[in-house]
Design a protein around this nucleic acid. Sequence first.
DNA 1: TTTTAGCACTCTCTCTTGTTGAGTGCCGAA
DNA 2: TTCGGCACTCAACAAGAGAGAGTGCTAAAA
Lengths: 347, 347
Amino acid sequence: MMSTLNEELNERSRHLLKLLVERYISDGQPVGSAALAREKGLGISPATIRHVMADLEDLGLIHSPHTSAGRVPTNSGYRFFVDSLLTVRRPEQKQLSELKIHVGKEYGSNQIITSASQLLSGITHLAGVVSLPKRESASFRQIDFMPLSKGRVLVVLVTNDDEVHNRVIQTTKEFTSSELQRAANYLNSLFAGQSLRQVTSIIAHEMAETQKQMNQMMIDAINLAHQSVNNGKESEDIVLSGATNLMDFQELSDVNNMRHLLEAFSQKQDIIQLLDRCMNAEGVQIFIGEESGYQPFGSCSLITAPYAVDNQTVGVLGVIGPTRMRYDKVIPLVDVTAKVLGEALKS
Amino acid sequence: MMSTLNEELNERSRHLLKLLVERYISDGQPVGSAALAREKGLGISPATIRHVMADLEDLGLIHSPHTSAGRVPTNSGYRFFVDSLLTVRRPEQKQLSELKIHVGKEYGSNQIITSASQLLSGITHLAGVVSLPKRESASFRQIDFMPLSKGRVLVVLVTNDDEVHNRVIQTTKEFTSSELQRAANYLNSLFAGQSLRQVTSIIAHEMAETQKQMNQMMIDAINLAHQSVNNGKESEDIVLSGATNLMDFQELSDVNNMRHLLEAFSQKQDIIQLLDRCMNAEGVQIFIGEESGYQPFGSCSLITAPYAVDNQTVGVLGVIGPTRMRYDKVIPLVDVTAKVLGEALKS
DNA sequence: TTTTAGCACTCTCTCTTGTTGAGTGCCGAA
DNA sequence: TTCGGCACTCAACAAGAGAGAGTGCTAAAA
């Protein structure tokens, strides 16, 4: 589809489309042939431009809101623009250092994430979102059990990134405080320094050969650990900032639209799913309008990039804004933020 | 001020004001003399009503948006209405049982709080807010230390309400894992079952007489505990729900207003302060418009009630909506929700 | 003194109408 | 193929006319 478009359009048409999209992004007004013709260094008359525009409209790249308004890019128009026409700017030095300084100086991964999200929204004046790093990436530091009432046990799991995960599990058997203490000690020495992924596999392995020289305590401990880790599809979470920035945009200002959008933000659930789908992609991903497949984002674009710690992808971050956004600035910013964030989480 | 108003106004004027406010709250349209006269069981002509209205306007209780619109209550009008005229309805049975069922069945105080907040907003179609219970009310169950890098120590404190509090403290001396373990064991036996308030005083007491038969370990332990509890003015927090409900109201729909409002909600800080001021009040408190002293709430009302566990006030909950709200329903609902929540947190 | 009907008046809201300006599509000439 | 010319379309704006709602005032009735 894109390649046929590329064949269809000669150099001049593409250049005009590019100018038109850029102009519309900066002004927010439909762009007319005369306005484009005034563009410096473009020795073409409005009439000719109108011919080209008619072609672009036939191809579904732009359209007129009404008879005598200028042209506005369609979502396909934006898509072609970012795919083939866009010249990205490298991020401003000022923003870059701002990122590095603020994201770096925070303590604890949660803090770092929050800071990254706020910077994304602050710099772009759009909404920023960062998913919390997936737990598999973290490595085991310490586990602790505390008895609650009726066979419920509180599990406190500390990972190497200084984060604490609390979870309550239900056990079949009632444990005393000291039994739990011993189990914890055993597990702590068994798992010390392993990644959580490895921990999972150790558990599986140990459970398979229960008959070897394990005493009851060890069996119980492994069982507890199994439940703690497995049971623990801890609801993943995201940090959202600057949602209210989106209220500044005319094109989203329809009350109902805005409501759905803000509701989506406070529910988080759908956004989490959306971001999840970007985890496996290589670099920056761009969803324009309904491409995200998510109704409330009908007139929004979502720019995401996965971030990695020690070469392993652990999360996604991104920016949400109206389809009419500064792709040339936002895309590289999201890209670099992902890198900075990955770096900051390394410690 | 209120008493002078009460003297000033005869029975009929007050009744008319009541009808007017009720009518305006339900319709949202300025109420004219004719509309009021049509009210059943009111044998008065529009002309007479106009006289009364003129008086009410002189007293600053109502006003006309423009020459030939009806009258609308001013904030003082609302104030007089809720103080002297309002007949509250008892909460509907359905809502009551909904509250009791949902709030009761949750596990862990955070869950309970969230549920209460969501029910407040769900039932009223306004924004609900609940402050997390103040920690002093909880009692000590277990403390645990884990060494991080460079003399930082992670403190995990479990309270009786099954909540886990994590905090990082900076120690002057480097502790080994087993030193910390011993300190924790010591503190656990020392503080078992005490309220956090008592714990604080025990710490103070112990620190005072260091010279008695304490070994170094015990001194260290007490010092650690001191830091953990003191240092820990854990940033208080609130749970907000249904903020987007407010977008449905015409009177708040000014884009700028709404923006400030939603920003206030996502910042939380100011709201927390506002709620804090209601902690010490006895029962339901009502702030109408600028009475809250908080700019973004200029055309909102805030209805709050403190909630108590075992006769001790531990938090505040409330509802935020436009000044034009169903006070007759919201006030008792907030009241009863506070009671239900207090009850649910008892376990 | 209080209440009421009558009446002139005011102001918003809505509908209509005209005007302007931007922008288009098409045609025929360069 | 490009371009100027031209008729045409349509949103946006402003002005004006009614209609409707509601008021305040006055003078008569209770």
